[in-house]
Design a protein around this nucleic acid. Structure first.
Lengths: 224, 224, 224, 224
DNA sequence: GATGAATGAGGTTTCATTCAT
DNA sequence: TATGAATGAAACCTCATTCAT
């Protein structure tokens, strides 16, 4: 992850833009691996192969660095969401069988999450970075969350309009789903297991759409 | 939350046991409010109305204090779970209508979560405390998580044996549910809104058991 | 000036009050010798024979230390001025010969300046410490100045009421005198010469009271 | 005060001589406004509209910049003093009335001070710049002081030879006068009031020449 | 048991100065 | 000649921990 300069060179010169981006990349990795508080500026700088002072020519603060990392992530997520096709445009969904719908939803969810969970670093950052730091960090994390939830809610409402799902509280349902996925991902991270987003998403979509009740029990419900 | 000594007394003497418990109570509050890294020993001590040195007669470390707080929580959760009635013992469940089952599950889940979410402090602690600190903290958090998940999995398997639910992956399902609840609780905390655990649990149980799909779509599924 | 702990002792314990006073004494010396910006906290601490952290248990800031030093000086000057006898009470002054009056004024001025110029350290501090630091430093320096000027103005006005002096602008006259003394003292300090306050004050008082004009020229003035 | 390059030009090329002079002008302003320690190289450079590296092609040091600024000032003062008419050449002074002499002295003093206090920047620089920096800065400030004091002493001695003034210690008298003026100017600066050098000089000259004693008291002196 | 003064490692941040372009 | 990216020494400050009282 770290981008060290060529061996033997004392200094490496980069245009400000590039240097900033490089620092951001290293910072993301370090923050993700160690957490904001434990990570030190020195760590980030040595990961980037630069002196400590250099970092401060591009960022005013340690917090500013984290903010920039998250801002970048925010932009990426926004970009991905903006370029998605609207569910509403899908015709014929109303008459599709459940299995097909599940598959479609899973894929669609997967795509979106890929934007956030683009790399393990971003993922760890968003999921477990200590909230409660002063300044804009909470706000950005909230904005990212809002972006994702908003997209999910939009989808749910479109689906409801198509008659595919029924839910009185799309907000809650979206949050619930997202929370469930996050937990599964976190646990995988925590166990140092590879994150099989594909499988997680498909299982989770299935549960949320179909529900856990057995067909037998449902039948009892329909009878009464 | 802080347990200050009587006014006017310079020093207050307490038997070791009590003092330890008192410190723990204050520490839980402070850690919850500020997070492990941001909270300072001084903060905890002044909340407890004691000198900084006193804390070190009962704990070896800042980390040790957090560990003790979590250990205490762990014991409480274990106690609650140990005293629960087994689902397996419930007869007649197999023929109950879905609505009744949902209500039952919701209540049961609610009871368990109450143990962890006993007070806002415990709750914030478990949900957002930065993982990744060296030492036993991760382990304890994992043990608490395991306790809860274990209970949920046991319930799910009992229910499956009764023919009430169908799930190939009770582990995943349990984690998913727990994650969803946690997210909803966290978001409420984060918005400084009161945590309406009652409502959260009931909505969430409903979604997970019944699923979001409309009856119309399900019918299509049954036809094919 | 530095108050080092006994040799061989690792730590020396002092009641907060005393430690604070000791640090202040050392800080005054160091600030005086090196100037606020050049002086470092480390310097002050090693002069006081304490660790760097100890200083920060008594002061919040480097600036706070300087402020405290100056505040102390302010209080000392105020005390001295408060205990002075009023000029107005002196009877018979109206008919005293000029030489006597000069001597009296010189002594009185000397007493007052002794309070400020109590030691070389205070003196250097007040006279040449960089003004323009944010915070209360300017204000305290101004208050000290005001104290001294106020006392001088009061004296001048009493003297005028007694018919001993004539001046339309006691404010200006006082500032002028004080400025003149300060310059002479500064120059002495600067040349590393001992500051003969006795002589400076007497010469300066003489010039300001009597004036430089020759008796011959004055006579011309009286004639016309 | 800053001499910015033409708008739209990325780089502006100047012959070394001019660039140096331009930097000096900006540096004088910045040092005056902020003080040597607080002023930063970056500040000076951005005031001059140049890159930080450029400054180091004309000066070796931050200190070197201040030295150059002061050296320039020194030369200007020397020039002004060199072109003054000698007091000794003035005839008839011996029989002039005191008021006329005061007026003459005030004007003459005013002229000289104008050279130093040419602009507010120079003035602040000379009066309050922290002494005690290693290197030649103290020396230059002392040389400037010496220049002015020398001129004043010469004047005083000429006047004494003409019988206009009486003073055993022209050195002290000159310093005293200069100190008094400086204080008044500093206080005005400090209060952000405009510096009315005209008035300051005339009041101060009057006090120093005539003295504060009332005519009544003087008469007592003459009698005895 | 309790205290709070003392400590210093360790972190962040600044800024004069260098140097490749 | 001009630039501004890079540097790292050095400063300030925090705070968990120790220890004499």
């Amino acid at each position: 992850m770290s981008v060290l300069p060529e061996r033997g060179t004392k200094r490496s010169y980069l245009p400000a833009e590039e240097r900033r981006a490089q620092i951001l990349a290293c910072a993301r990795a370090v923050f993700a691996r160690r957490g904001f508080h434990v990570a030190s500026i020195a760590e980030i700088c040595s990961a980037a192969g630069i002196g400590r002072g250099t970092l401060y020519q591009h960022f005013t603060n340690k917090r500013d660095v984290l903010e920039a990392v998250l801002e970048e992530l925010f932009e990426r997520v926004r970009g991905v969401l903006a370029s998605r096709q609207s569910v509403a445009e899908l015709d014929g969904a109303a008459d599709a069988p459940p299995a097909l719908i599940c598959a479609f939803c899973a894929t669609r969810l997967r795509r979106m999450l890929d934007a956030i969970f683009h790399d393990e670093a971003s993922l760890r950052l968003v999921l477990r970075e200590a909230r409660g730091l002063d300044g804009g960090i909470d706000a950005i994390l909230a904005r990212i969350d809002g972006l994702v939830l908003g997209a999910m809610v939009t989808d749910l409402e479109s689906a409801r309009r198509l008659g595919v799902v029924e839910t009185a509280e799309p907000e809650l349902a979206a949050r619930f789903l997202l929370g469930g996925v996050e937990k599964l991902v976190l646990d995988a991270l925590h166990a140092d297991a590879p994150v099989d987003l594909e499988r997680i998403v498909s299982v989770v979509t299935d549960i949320q759409l179909t529900g856990l009740l057995s067909e037998r029990t449902r039948a009892i419900g329909r009878r009464s």
